[in-house]
Structures are given as C-alpha cells and as structure tokens.
C-alpha cells in the first residue's frame, strides 16, 4: 500500500496541504492533526492539493466534513484542487461537489478565495 504523506506549505494567508498516497481510516488521524493545528494557529483558508493522492476512503472524506464548518465559520474554507479522475469519482459518488469547491489547481482556488474575500 502506498504510504500516506501530508505536507504543509504557506502561501501568504493561505495554507496548502499536499496529500499523497492512500487516505483511509488508518491514515485519517494524520490529516486530522493537520487541520487541528491550522485551527490552533487561526489559519482557516485551506487549499488541499490532491495531485498525488491515489485513493480516498469515506473515513478520509469524513475528515473534510469534520473541519469544513469551523473553517467557514471563521471566514475560511477548504478547497480541493488537482484531483485525479479516480479520486474525483469517489468525491462525486458521495455528493461532495455540492458542498465543496473542487477546482482545477491551486491558483484557481486562491483566486476564488480572493474573490470571496471582496
């Protein structure tokens, strides 16, 4: 099984989380820690780059659900970018596109943030 890795980059006021490998029940707590750390640091504008994510299970999707409200309540959001088609189809299957901004790339997500900030 491909390892799960998560990295964090800051781009001005935006936090970019890079995910790679398999995000499932086993690895979900790692992403959870990322989100709680960001909330502790009052960083609520989050772009998650899924370029290298191979697989996501519903437990992995649940982590996004668990933190989206906190981010939005604090004028932030979680935007998902660069999804592989196989990963997108899982998000789509469970109805995520209705609730989340799922975008082409980081730039598009950041522009959307800036637009919403106006």
């Amino acid at each position: 099984m491909a390892d799960f890795k998560s990295g964090l980059r800051d781009k001005d006021e935006f936090s970019i989380i890079d995910l790679s490998g398999y995000l499932d029940a086993h690895t979900a707590p790692e992403l959870e820690t990322r989100f709680t750390n960001l909330i502790d640091k009052n960083r609520f504008k989050v772009v998650v780059n899924l370029k290298d994510l191979e697989y996501i299970s519903s437990a992995g999707l649940g982590v996004f659900m668990a933190y989206i409200e906190t981010m939005r309540e604090n004028q932030g959001d979680i935007k998902l970018v660069s999804l592989k088609p196989s990963v997108y189809s899982i998000f789509d299957l469970l109805g995520f596109p209705l609730l989340y901004d799922i975008m082409k790339d980081e730039e598009e997500a950041i522009n959307k943030f800036k637009e919403q900030g106006k």
């Binding site: 029940a25 299970s57 437990a59 649940g62 668990a66 469970l94 109805g95």
Partner: peptide, 28 residues
C-alpha cells in the same frame, strides 16, 4: 476498512473517531 481498523483493539477515542469520519464522509 473499518473492521480491519477496529480489529486492532484501538482505543475508544479512535474507534469513535473512525466511526464518525466514516459516517460524515458518507452522509456529509
């Protein structure tokens, strides 16, 4: 996936978190 994770006798908090995440992921 859950039966595999739950089988490892993880602690109560972890079991409940995984359960919650799976529910949230499925039902948004």
């Amino acid at each position: 996936e859950l039966s595999k994770e739950f089988g490892l006798l993880s602690d109560e908090r972890r079991i409940s978190k995984l359960l919650a995440y799976s529910l949230l992921g499925h039902f948004l």
